[in-house]
């Protein structure tokens, strides 16, 4: 069984991903040869028991970590073995990442947090960046809190700012590791719907790890994982 889609456009694909963590006797083969494709405009859920390697997979896809073996493509560009420079640029331009914990920069306002990836990418004036940041926050229901400092926002609000930040450079792929794991049911649903909406409206490929079976069921595709493999 694999997550490969036959035919159709592919936003990102992985082939034969192997990742071993730890060393010597403590070495664990966390990912054991994974293949899958992400389709644009679709939400993909990864579900599986704790410790089965979901986060490890997302870090590889997010180019935050390198596999021991295997390839990762965005379009035709292979990135698993690419230089740090190429991978950094790809993270900036093509990938958005949402973590379980928001990880906003607390001395920056919501709007400034959303502007950080844009400032790095360049090509926009300050006004354009501000406009886009406010627009994204508006879409996530935070228009009136754009100028609040990150630490003055509730957990759900912070997570939505993190989603706006992940979307800042209109990346082709959005990766989210238990984005709702830390939120109550109402906030979780709201955040999930926003991710779903982003994929369907903006055509992004969304890959989301979730423990919530109800939410997973609503995704376009579900990838079930156990012991470093899809089942």
């Amino acid at each position: 069984m694999s997550g490969q889609v036959t035919g159709g456009v592919v936003a990102m694909k992985a082939r034969g991903l192997v990742r071993t963590l730890g060393s010597g006797e403590a070495a664990v083969r966390v990912l054991d040869g994974l293949d899958f494709d992400l389709s644009p405009g679709k939400t993909h859920a990864i579900v599986g028991p704790s410790g089965c390697g979901k986060s490890t997979l997302l870090y590889l896809m997010g180019l935050l970590d390198r596999p021991d073996r295997g390839e990762i493509y965005i379009g035709d560009l292979e990135l698993a073995a690419a230089s740090d420079e190429v991978r950094t640029r790809a993270r900036n331009a093509s990938l958005g990442f949402v973590f379980q914990f928001h990880f906003l920069l607390s001395e920056f306002s919501a709007m400034e947090n959303v502007m950080l990836p844009m400032a790095k990418l360049g090509g926009k004036s300050r006004e354009e960046m501000e406009q886009r940041a406010v627009g994204l926050l508006d879409k996530l229901g935070l228009a009136d809190k754009a100028r609040r400092m990150a630490h003055q926002l509730s957990g759900g609000e912070q997570q939505r700012v993190a989603i706006a930040r992940a979307l800042a450079n209109a990346p082709a792929i959005l990766l989210a590791d238990e984005p709702t794991g830390n939120l109550d049911e109402r906030n979780a649903r709201q955040v999930f719907e926003q991710l779903q909406g982003v994929a369907h409206e903006l055509g992004q490929a969304v890959l989301m790890v979730t423990h919530n079976p109800g939410l997973a069921e609503q995704c376009d595709r579900i990838l079930r994982m156990r012991d470093g493999r899809f089942t």
């Binding site: 997010g62 740090d84 950094t88 993270r91 331009a93 990442f97 990880f103 950080l116 790095k120 930040r165």
Partner: peptide
């Protein structure tokens, strides 16, 4: 360190 990690994840390089 977490903020550094998040900055890296959004495309800030080691040099940055």
């Amino acid at each position: 360190s977490r903020e550094i990690a998040i900055l890296r994840s959004m495309g800030y390089s080691r040099g940055d």
